[in-house]
Computed example of a mutant assay.
Amino acid sequence: MNSPALEAHVDLSAVAHNVEILRSHTTAQVMVVVKADGYGHGAAQVARAALAAGATELGVATIDEALAVRRDGVGAPILAWMHSRGSDFAGAIDADVQIGVSSPRQLDAVVAAARVARRPAAVTVKIDTGLARNGVAPAEWDQLAAGLAKAVAEQSIVLRGAMTHLVRGDEPRHPENDLQAQRFDEAVADLIRVGARPQVQHISNSAATLMRPDLARDLVRPGIAVYGRSPAPDRGDFGLRPVMTLSAEVLSLKKIKAGQGVSYSHTWVAPRDTTVALLPAGYADGVPRLMSGRLRVQINGRGFPGVGRVCMDQMVVDVGPDGGGVAEGDRAILFGTGAGGGPTALDWAEAIGSIDYEIVSGIRGRTVRTYSAEPVGTSDTGSRSTQGIGAP
């Protein structure tokens, strides 16, 4: 099978490996976060690989994301925690999607939907313990706790869980983590006192799962670590394996003379006679324009610099006066595992002052995702499948 011109290859064996690493750091069950279409890797494909490796539940941001996973045939417990006024609570109840609740108004809407459906909604209360993002505001806590108790008593809801998000999970010894855990435990004690005991509790993100096992409750909720990216790069990779490799076909080679400018505005001018290679990857595909002049790619095991501006559809690489042994049809690794000194998503992030979460979740456009159950280059080519990034 020929590789697409621009390919994001997803190694599902790496997903399984990373879930096993996470499980080895905790005694809690693992809820794998597959929001944003599995951080750009494919939510359903990652979900199935993670569940097969021992994860027990899934987390997403929106109900629409949860329903998409359901439509792809994944039946595991799944929680969605960010909602608008138009969110489909009735659809969530019908599809057995757990609903995160962050305000009395949301609870009222969920209860109303449950009454119409004539079946209880599975609810997780999201508690703001200091992040000041979504989650129940402290000023509304007493009202919501009372509302949850009433809804439990009348069997409009089942209180499946209580959760919070850490502010400084990637700083394991920061006192804010302990303060948030204390606030969370106090809030759960409030719920128990009013007769609304949650079935499960969860605090830990990827960083806390790996570095603060004492913060684990019934579940941990890793995201980025599932995809092989370290939640604390300054502390190492924890044995995680990057899941996505972004590569592009060399479309053409062109010899140019010293003094020739390349790409828009000629921001790079060849200092010597050289050869440039054209790659079909641009900012419409998720290669940040800010990477102009900062990229390095790997072709046939050798590193080459990107030159000139990254355009909407394409970019140019200097392969040197002798052509670097590069031929049309060769593949350029834009980022991947870092094997052999190759580029990584973290390299991109550090080059533009971002984080690798943004890099991998931002791959889009004409990029085609492919999947295998083993790393690229192994003998198991029969497991490979293909899906466009924009596919439903």
Rank of each mutant, 00 (worst) to 15 (best):
residue 165 H to T: 04
residue 319 V to D: 01
residue 134 N to Q: 14
residue 370 T to M: 00
residue 317 V to L: 05
residue 370 T to N: 10
residue 230 S to T: 12
residue 172 P to C: 08
residue 11 D to F: 06
residue 112 A to T: 13
residue 275 T to I: 15
residue 143 Q to E: 15
residue 258 A to C: 12
residue 36 A to W: 05
residue 8 A to T: 04
residue 3 S to V: 07
residue 325 G to Q: 10
residue 81 W to V: 08
residue 342 G to D: 02
residue 269 V to C: 10
residue 244 M to T: 12
residue 365 G to F: 02
residue 50 A to M: 10
residue 117 A to Q: 15
residue 9 H to C: 05
residue 32 V to Q: 00
residue 320 G to I: 07
residue 148 L to K: 00
residue 327 A to V: 12
residue 308 G to Y: 04
residue 128 D to H: 06
residue 347 D to S: 09
residue 275 T to E: 08
residue 120 P to W: 03
residue 2 N to P: 15
residue 67 L to N: 03
residue 71 R to S: 15
residue 149 A to C: 10
residue 49 A to W: 02
residue 328 E to T: 14
residue 54 G to D: 07
residue 331 R to Y: 09
residue 44 A to L: 08
residue 229 R to W: 03
residue 169 G to Q: 02
residue 334 L to A: 02
residue 115 R to G: 14
residue 270 A to G: 04
residue 224 I to V: 15
residue 313 D to L: 13
residue 189 A to I: 09
residue 5 A to T: 11
residue 232 A to S: 15
residue 215 L to S: 03
residue 296 R to G: 05
residue 76 A to N: 03
residue 173 R to M: 10
residue 276 V to Q: 00
residue 24 S to L: 02
residue 63 I to N: 02
residue 252 S to T: 14
residue 120 P to G: 03
residue 119 R to T: 13
residue 73 G to N: 09
residue 113 A to Q: 01
residue 259 G to R: 09
residue 326 V to P: 01
residue 22 L to P: 00
residue 297 V to F: 05
residue 319 V to I: 15
residue 1 M to W: 13
residue 380 D to Y: 06
residue 163 M to D: 03
residue 101 V to C: 13
residue 356 D to R: 01
residue 77 P to Q: 12
residue 283 Y to M: 06
residue 198 P to A: 03
residue 1 M to D: 07
residue 341 G to W: 10
residue 30 V to Q: 01
residue 157 I to Q: 00
residue 135 G to H: 05
residue 179 L to M: 14
residue 57 E to S: 13
residue 256 I to G: 05
residue 318 D to H: 04
residue 381 T to L: 12
residue 161 G to F: 05
residue 73 G to P: 00
residue 257 K to I: 11
residue 81 W to I: 07
residue 213 P to Y: 11
residue 298 Q to M: 15
residue 362 G to S: 12
residue 384 R to H: 14
residue 367 T to M: 08
residue 261 G to D: 01
residue 201 Q to V: 11
residue 301 G to A: 13
residue 121 A to S: 07
residue 156 S to G: 12
residue 262 V to C: 07
residue 145 A to D: 02
residue 298 Q to K: 12
residue 169 G to V: 06
residue 66 A to P: 02
residue 169 G to K: 02
residue 261 G to H: 08
residue 351 A to S: 14
residue 247 S to P: 00
residue 287 V to G: 00
residue 282 G to Y: 03
residue 317 V to D: 03
residue 160 R to D: 08
residue 124 T to Q: 10
residue 392 P to Q: 14
residue 39 Y to H: 09
residue 7 E to M: 06
residue 328 E to L: 06
residue 154 E to K: 10
residue 207 A to Q: 04
residue 314 Q to F: 13
residue 88 D to F: 09
residue 201 Q to K: 15
residue 198 P to S: 03
residue 185 D to H: 13
residue 185 D to T: 14
residue 133 R to D: 08
residue 298 Q to S: 14
residue 251 L to N: 07
residue 311 C to Q: 15
residue 179 L to P: 01
residue 214 D to L: 09
residue 98 Q to F: 08
residue 314 Q to Y: 13
residue 259 G to Q: 07
residue 65 E to H: 04
residue 79 L to M: 12
residue 286 G to P: 03
residue 377 G to L: 07
residue 376 V to T: 13
residue 267 T to Y: 09
residue 256 I to K: 09
residue 131 L to Y: 02
residue 211 M to G: 06
residue 366 R to H: 15
residue 114 A to P: 03
residue 278 L to R: 12
residue 27 T to M: 11
residue 56 T to L: 09
residue 199 Q to W: 07
residue 204 S to G: 09
residue 123 V to H: 01
residue 170 D to A: 15
residue 357 Y to G: 01
residue 299 I to W: 00
residue 98 Q to Y: 06
residue 99 I to T: 01
